[in-house]
Amino acid sequence: MSDAQVIRVELPTGLMELSTDAGAFSVDELMGFAARANVKRGFLFLSKVLGKHWPVRPAAMRQIHEHLAQQVPADLPGPLVFIAMAETAIGLGQGVFEAFKKAHPAVEALFVHTSRYHVGGAEIIEFSEAHSHAPRQFLHMPQDETLRLLLLNARSLVLVDDEASTGNTFLNLSQACRVLNSRIEHVHLCTITNFMGQAANQALSQRFGIPVSIAAALSGEYCFTPGQLESLPGAAQVFEAHADRGANAGFGRLGLDRPLSAPAGFAAKLAASFRANERVLVLGTGEFMHLPFLLGCALEARGVDVQVQSTTRSPILKWGAVSEAITFADNYGEGVANYIYNVTPGQYDQVLICHETPANAALLSTAQAVGGRLFHFLSETHIEEISVR
């Protein structure tokens, strides 16, 4: 158990004052502080257990998934729909869903994640993440009839993000879902950190118009006093309704009612090819995060020294919890700058770059920048290594 803390941090973009409650985890276990190149929000609670901007042991990620799944109220009216927020919390939400299904296999539950890409001809519902560097978010309607009915008949939403600071995005998404499905009668918010404060937490049900519960690994309240900041140039998001960005329809965008299968056979082949004591990084790309995590778990189970993280479109300054930053083109072809944080060339003996999009120049340049290998996941079990030479 951690003690309550009061923290004051001078960021290049302003002053952060944070008070936290006593809980199961300490601030330092879960997060660091970073500064964002974003005039809408100049700070970032940079998670050390999310597997996005910071390298994490798969076991530590799974511990958080299970901890948050255990806090989903047992008496929620079903069916349940778990929705993970793109891009940062896609892996977290899928991990929480799978941990919940493992503990409650008989409960009817659907997983779907939001996206910034449109796949196939599926109908999309748009909502806003106003403070984001890329504010437009989309939720796809499942094409499978059974999964579609789960969404349309759900009575509870479990909305998953890495942090809650205002609750606005959760509110926008829940309103969009309730327009689609008027049967929804409860919303549960699930986050690693919840810094909205006690008064805001108590006002959630009134604000949402239906009963709302919230659970986090760490809770408290923050105050950020912004300083001067100019945003980085360049577009953060380019959405063309019918552009094929190579996003896969089978990994969660169109809904799943089961856990994804870990690529155990593939992991066994990789592990057998590594030399003893090699340091391995499994690097997801953009919204493709959960299968890389499952690969990391499978490698870890075979004794491999492995960590997991992902590329991101979020511009973060090289300060605080960000010691290194590599910039490259995005592999989804939007022409939007992407980044890898806290990775230096030569830090790992093996860098396994996992991607859902077909191989392209952006992926090849990324592999060359970090000395990595490319692995194209066409499905859970069909994985092809792409030559980087």
Rank of each mutant, 00 (worst) to 15 (best):
F111E: 09
F111M: 05
V112I: 15
V112L: 15
V112E: 10
H113L: 09
H113I: 02
T114A: 04
T114P: 09
S115F: 02
S115A: 12
R116N: 00
Y117G: 00
Y117M: 03
H118K: 09
H118M: 01
H118D: 07
H118W: 04
V119G: 07
V119L: 01
G120M: 01
G120D: 02
G120T: 01
G120H: 08
G121S: 05
G121W: 00
A122Q: 04
A122M: 03
E123S: 00
I124T: 12
E126F: 06
E126L: 03
E126I: 00
E126M: 09
S128M: 14
E129P: 08
E129K: 07
E129G: 04
A130R: 13
A130N: 14
A130P: 15
H131R: 08
S132A: 15
S132M: 06
H133C: 11
H133G: 04
A134H: 02
A134P: 08
P135D: 11
P135A: 11
P135F: 04
R136Y: 09
Q137A: 03
Q137M: 07
F138Y: 15
L139V: 12
H140G: 06
H140Q: 09
H140W: 04
M141L: 12
M141N: 00
P142W: 06
P142H: 00
D144S: 01
E145F: 00
E145N: 08
E145T: 12
T146R: 15
L149C: 11
L150G: 13
L151K: 05
L152S: 13
L152W: 02
L152Y: 06
N153G: 12
N153H: 14
R155T: 08
R155Q: 15
S156E: 10
S156C: 10
L157T: 02
L157S: 03
V158F: 01
V158T: 01
L159Q: 08
L159N: 11
V160P: 09
D161T: 05
D161I: 05
D161K: 12
D161A: 08
D161H: 08
D161R: 06
D162H: 06
D162Y: 02
E163K: 00
E163N: 00
A164C: 06
S165E: 02
S165C: 09
T166S: 14
G167R: 01
G167K: 04
G167A: 10
F170I: 04
F170T: 03
L171C: 09
N172H: 14
N172Q: 15
L173H: 14
L173C: 14
Q175I: 10
Q175S: 13
Q175N: 14
A176H: 06
A176R: 13
A176Y: 09
C177I: 03
R178Y: 07
V179A: 14
V179M: 11
L180Q: 11
S182D: 15
S182F: 07
I184L: 10
E185G: 15
H186R: 15
H186T: 11
V187T: 10
V187G: 01
V187E: 00
H188M: 05
L189M: 12
T191W: 05
T191K: 00
T191F: 11
T191P: 00
